[in-house]
Design a protein around this nucleic acid. Structure first.
Lengths: 342, 342
DNA sequence: CTGAAAGCGCTTACAG
DNA sequence: CTGAAAGCGCTTACAG
């Protein structure tokens, strides 16, 4: 059909050149089988392989071994600036271990998630890193039911017994709120992320818990349907329509914060003079806004890298008890938060 | 070895359930072979496949067909904000056609490029989209020599006879320079991108050509070694050390422009009051800087999408003459450019 | 319209 | 230490 590719050199060509059986070539070229072959033959095979420009057909070995040295990654959307650093962390770590990475965008839609996983399974991926988890996540159940190694990143599920690399959200939110209180804010609102995600839910919970402990009103919470600029804008306006006495707002992430800022701009509200605003994630280049956004730095690259290390351990059979790793975020104070007015 | 996966359902299981030969199942499930099978059998096969939760093993079919319905993508660095939109354009288009995408970062290093291509060939990719081309690009020669379908995106090579989706750089640079001249700038500098890339080279060439035609000094060009913020900063300072009489600078891309801005900030130079600055690419969120960057909007998603369409046509055998498509960029004027001082 | 066979390029248990 | 054989799950030319 497709006579595009030149005749590829196979293990048999190498075998013929050396004058051995192709199974010998296979062994000579395999790092952990090489020991069973005489050094002289190994040398000859390597020389012949190089001479012929041989490189292994991973597809063939995948079929035989039922694995492909590939990890899948499920993200909502590559264009959300949170994800490129996470994925780069995944790719670098995977590649260093000889794995490649297959990424799919799900746009947080369940059917895209399903078909992405199906595609990956058809490609015999060795495991999957899931950045799209909702608190109840069918994909996670499917992975468990089918013994597909997986680790969650950024978002986790409500159930126990899964591997996940997430943030210490309580710490992150507390550090924002400590900062805001130090600036004398007592009327603080929250634009919460979607409550079916652990990030949206736990940040909101940490928010209300904190305020209650400090005997502050904790009912100024508006939930955004998605972690997007548009939803941030919408939610901010909805919040303001209900109640205009807050002096600071904590956004569920940076994109929501940008939406709040847009809303303020449209309504002639100045930040930080009238209202302080803080975000979460510290997406790339956000520090160049002016006034720049006070936010919580999350170790994006490291989360990706750590999730991959964990996944590779599971794949390698070194899995222990499932563990959720909580990475420490770090508040970075910039110009968007200021002393409370009045 | 790995007893992780449950016994997978294969075409044979479906065949057994229906009571036909597995080759019949293969045909019944193949869109373009289905016509050769009686509708009744097709129905039964489909029903059985669904009942058993069958999904095809792409690895097996890849081995047989020597293709994998996968396209490779070579980019310098996912964390460069230019690329996520391009890749999303690629992914969406590829996915709609039933293809998946394998992305690799090369960091503009030749050996990483080589090993990425080798990895992809070992995985029987059907073609590759190259966003990392230098003007002389061994990878391109290798693809040609091995009949690997490819299309270049964003950057192209000097040689003819390749498929590429690039920008009309002359138009882009001219639109910046027209704008700057309308603001009475006559002393204009250029922080050029690396000259071994077509983008760096052609933008610089368009720059000097334009100035010469307008009888303006065209020698204020400093070449950056990479398209990075750091290099922009370095180059701006180098330029300024040589000559401080320019009133505007055209940066080879937005990251270089950011570097220039950093340098100005460090040196107490105000933009746009003292010096106007323009970028190129319009990377996401850059419009939120303050003053915001005047730059050239390039259709990133569309370039990715168009490159993929072209690649899929070649893969599908519908290739015509190689063609380089030049997409039209569009100047967007923001706060970083102002009337020339004095 | 359907079946039986061969083969894609590897890997590995089994012999020797 | 090396060879010969079987098989991973598909697809398709060849018969009928």
């Amino acid at each position: 059909m497709n006579a595009r590719k030149k005749a590829k050199v196979t293990i048999r060509d190498v075998a013929d050149l050396v004058g051995v059986h192709h199974s010998t070539v296979s062994r000579a070229l395999s790092p952990d089988k090489r020991g069973k072959i005489s050094p002289a033959v190994v040398k000859k095979v390597e020389r012949a392989a190089k001479k012929l420009g041989y490189y292994p057909n991973i597809v063939a070995s995948s079929l035989k071994l039922n694995r492909s040295f590939t990890v899948g990654v499920l993200i909502p959307d590559l264009m959300n600036p949170l994800f490129p650093p996470i994925i780069r962390g995944i790719q670098d770590t995977a590649e260093a271990a000889g794995f490649t990475v297959l990424t799919a965008n799900t746009d947080d839609e369940e059917d895209k998630e399903q078909s992405a996983l199906k595609m990956m399974r058809g490609r015999s991926i060795d495991g999957v890193i899931i950045a799209t988890a909702r608190r109840q996540e069918p994909i996670v159940e499917e992975c468990i039911a089918n013994d597909i190694p997986f680790v969650l990143v950024n978002r986790t599920v409500d159930r126990d017994g899964v591997n996940a690399v997430v943030l210490d959200e309580t710490f992150g939110v507390r550090s924002i709120l400590d900062h805001l209180m130090s600036l004398k804010h007592t009327q603080i609102a929250h634009i919460a992320g979607p409550q079916h995600t652990s990030t949206g839910y736990h940040r909101a919970k940490a928010f209300t818990d904190y305020l209650r402990i400090h005997d502050l009103p904790a009912d100024r919470v508006e939930v955004a349907a998605k972690f997007t600029v548009d939803e941030g804008r919408r939610a901010f306006k909805a919040l303001l329509a209900r109640d205009n006495r807050f002096t600071a707002v904590v956004a569920g992430n940076d994109l929501l914060a940008l939406g709040c800022i847009d809303a303020m701009q449209e309504m002639g509200i100045n930040y930080p003079d009238n209202i302080s605003i803080a975000g979460y994630d510290d997406i790339p280049f956000i520090e160049r806004m002016n006034p720049a956004l006070t936010t919580v730095v999350v170790p994006k690259y490291e989360m990706g890298s750590q999730a991959t290390k964990t996944l590779l351990e599971i794949i390698g059979g070194k899995s222990k008890e499932p563990v959720v790793m909580r990475m420490q975020p770090r508040l970075v104070v910039r110009g968007s938060t200021a002393i409370a007015p009045r």
